[in-house]
Amino acid sequence: MGTPEGIPQYCAQPPQSQPVLRPDLGPQRARAIQIVRSKWVNGTMLRYCFFDDGGEGPGKNQLDEVHQAFQDWKDVGIGLEFREVHDAGDAEIRISFRDDGSWSYVGTDVLTISSREPTMNFGWDLTSPHGKATARHEIGHSLGFAHEHQNPFAGIVWDEEKVYSELGGPPNNWPRAVTFHNVLRKLSVSEVTGSSWDPESIMEYGFPGGLIKEPVKFRSGIPSPLKLSEVDRELVLTWYPPLKAEIPELAPFASAPLDLASGGQADFEIKPPETRKYTLGTFGQTDVVLVLFEDIGGELRYLAGEDDSGEDRNGRLEVKLQKGRRYVVRTRLYSAWGSGDASIMCW
């Protein structure tokens, strides 16, 4: 982000949470969990609010730019929904405008942050080209995407001491630990999808010349991406494809197969024939995240969730469902780590 002629202001991403996985977990199973863990279940309504820090606030132009940045991601055709709310307790994404740089927690990590704290911050004007790119970059983090220049497939060899020196001065004034975390640290291959680097991604920083030794073509710098790239659009649609207009019904005591690849998702609607406590669960040797929503006035609201990744058990939800109401259960597969078929049932 910024221009390659000088050191711009950069996003200072907070550390991501890391799942504690059993040491005996197979590498493919562990990799699938690492890749999927920060992504939302497709079809989730992500509510965002502007955090009240007191004072006059950021001004309408700044708020409008955030609204438009959410819309730009939505216009790709993704299955996620975004809606502004005015109560921080109802919002997964809470946006502040503090003089604290620009940053965002990544994906579902926002759920671990107190509702009294922001999960995203904008520390400079969003109406400039650099600011517009910042808004789209931080929302990319909230969708579960990391910094592209830290992609292990980029093959970047840094002049590390020069990077520390440049980012340690104005306008970023970063300590070495922040520079390492946001620039020099390479992501593990187990954390990234695909096998290539996209220097045009909105998740890429723009860098001036003299910081990169290899690849040779980038010794003069990396131009600052100012909009979503074609690869950004393709990748976000792999995780959040358009939702189907109709989904199959999951009737009580009827098993439905889960014929999914890693990262795939299956959706079912439930229309309870009676009001009582029901159990929803998966069967088979799989790692899944299981999320149940209730249809309230045409909007799906989160009701319950379960994540069995890395454990040798199946996901189970026990919930009271009401006759005459509609529910939707969404199942995202981390991996199928054993033999046999996987399925889901409500009983």
Score class of each variant (00 low, 15 high):
Val288Trp: 10
Gly209Lys: 04
Ala32Lys: 03
Asp198Tyr: 04
Gly43Ile: 06
Pro58Gln: 03
His147Ile: 03
Ile95Tyr: 07
Gln322Phe: 12
Gly340Arg: 04
Gln68Tyr: 14
Glu92Tyr: 08
Val328Lys: 15
Gly54Thr: 05
Thr112Pro: 00
Phe122Cys: 03
Gly6Tyr: 15
Ile212Lys: 04
Asn314Trp: 07
Glu234Pro: 00
Ile212Thr: 04
Gly54Phe: 02
Ala30Trp: 04
Ser114Leu: 08
Ile344Ser: 02
Glu299Ser: 12
Arg325Gln: 11
Arg47Lys: 14
Glu246Trp: 12
Leu303Pro: 03
Gln28Met: 13
Glu161Leu: 13
Glu160Tyr: 10
Ile113Asn: 00
Ser309Glu: 08
Arg301Gly: 01
Phe97Lys: 02
Asp99Phe: 15
Val178Asp: 09
Ser38Gln: 14
Leu290Thr: 02
Arg233Met: 12
Leu292Trp: 04
Arg29His: 10
Ile113Cys: 05
Ile35Thr: 09
Val231Gln: 15
Gly281Arg: 12
Ile344Lys: 01
Pro272Asp: 03
Leu228Asn: 05
Ser102His: 02
Asp295Met: 09
Gly209Thr: 03
Ala261Leu: 13
Glu204Asn: 14
Ile247Lys: 01
Leu303Ser: 03
Tyr302Ala: 12
Phe51Glu: 01
Glu56Gln: 12
Glu5Asp: 14
Gly26Thr: 03
Pro152Thr: 00
Gly131Ile: 06
His67Met: 12
Ser165His: 13
Lys244Phe: 14
Arg37Met: 12
His141Trp: 10
Asp267Ala: 13
Glu148Gly: 00
Pro118Trp: 03
Val157Phe: 07
Gln265Arg: 08
Arg176Lys: 13
Thr331Met: 09
Thr282Met: 07
Gln28His: 12
Arg31Phe: 11
Pro225Ala: 09
Gln13Ile: 14
His181Ile: 10
Met203Tyr: 08
Phe82Met: 08
Lys39Asn: 05
Lys271Met: 12
Arg313Gln: 13
Pro241Gly: 07
Asn182Tyr: 09
Asp232Cys: 06
Ser96Ala: 13
Glu214Pro: 05
Gln34Trp: 15
Asp100Gln: 07
Thr119His: 02
Val76Thr: 07
Gly264Arg: 02
Pro248Thr: 06
Met45Phe: 13
Gly168His: 05
Cys346Val: 15
Ala261Val: 11
Ile270Thr: 00
Pro248Leu: 10
Gly59Met: 03
Leu126Glu: 00
Phe268Tyr: 14
Pro252Asp: 02
Ser195Ala: 10
Arg325Pro: 01
Glu246Lys: 13
